[in-house]
Amino acid sequence: MTIMHLPSPVTIGLARGLTEVKLFFRSKEQAIFTFAFPAGILAVLGSVFSRTYEDTGVSSSHVLTASMVGAGIIATSFVNLSISVALDREDGTLLRLRGTPMPAISYFLGKIILVLVASLAETVLVLGVGVALFGLDLPTDPAKWLTFAWVFVLAVISCSLIGIFTASLAKSGQSAAAVANLPYVGLQFVSGVYVSPITLLPAGMVTVASLFPIKWAAQGFRSVFLPDSMMKYEMAGSWELGRTALVLGVWCVVGLGLCLMTFRWSNRSR
């Protein structure tokens, strides 16, 4: 008698991730808008609000470029997944997947893989705008790129899981857009994405922003693409990479727990 072994949740998740990526890029309008939005915002704001930190030689457009890498990841993960997961539930996609051997954790992994691929492409575009329009110098130190890698991965995982959790709070894809966009836009301002330097913001606002990933993702990317002379313009006067890793890592764990507790396959089940 032959015993059939089902694929592991990781294998199923990888297969689902490949499907998610294919579906995403087949929707040309969605792909173009996703990639163009942060790059377009950067091109406009970087051109309109441009000044130089005289003691460092760094332009405010360089600061914005680094911060927009983080903001772009949050949009691709938190905002897009809040909407797409709610739509998957609304149109019956999740019910059909439930009839397969796919556990919820594999579905989460598939969405995270999609965000990893889309965010990487989006980051390349944002950095391309920063280099071409504003003369941003990309780092040559391998240690800087190592920092980029772990900040990128932790930001993608944490914010993807928060996005999947947020979708559970919405009854439809339309309401998910409203639920996700308000905190996303608000947190961009209080997290120092659009306000440079972040020390211009009231300390209370930054304290609130420090509870969420976007502030730490943006700060982590600033540590990669800006010289260390810019550390003094951070609230703590340093890049705080250890705290960045801690906060993003905690949100990965908390986000997974929230997803497992609240995820549902249809709007009729709890």
Rank of each mutant, 00 (worst) to 15 (best):
S266E: 10
L127T: 01
A203F: 12
V254W: 00
P139R: 13
F35R: 05
A209V: 06
R222L: 01
A71G: 04
S223T: 13
T262W: 13
S168G: 11
S59G: 02
L248A: 05
G204N: 11
P139A: 11
G255I: 06
S119D: 01
L246F: 15
T100Q: 06
I157P: 00
T65A: 07
L45I: 14
G46M: 05
G173C: 10
G72Q: 03
L116V: 04
L18E: 07
L136S: 05
F152I: 10
T147S: 09
M1P: 15
D88A: 12
T11P: 03
T123K: 00
L161F: 06
L116K: 03
T56I: 01
S210M: 08
A132N: 01
S61P: 06
V206F: 06
L114E: 01
I162W: 08
A104T: 14
M205I: 07
N267Y: 09
S60M: 03
L116N: 02
R89T: 02
F24R: 10
P9Q: 01
M102L: 14
F212G: 08
L260D: 11
T207M: 07
M4A: 12
A66E: 01
S269L: 09
F108K: 05
C159N: 14
L200E: 10
I157C: 01
N181C: 09
S106H: 08
R16H: 12
I162L: 14
S229D: 13
R96V: 07
L116Q: 02
R270N: 10
V250F: 05
S196G: 01
S50E: 15
F134Q: 01
E90H: 08
S77G: 07
V10C: 00
A104W: 06
F24A: 09
G72Y: 02
V253M: 09
T100W: 04
L127G: 00
E122S: 13
L248F: 06
L201N: 06
M102E: 10
S50D: 15
V254D: 09
A132T: 07
C252M: 10
S67E: 08
C252E: 04
L127R: 00
G237I: 11
I157F: 03
G192L: 11
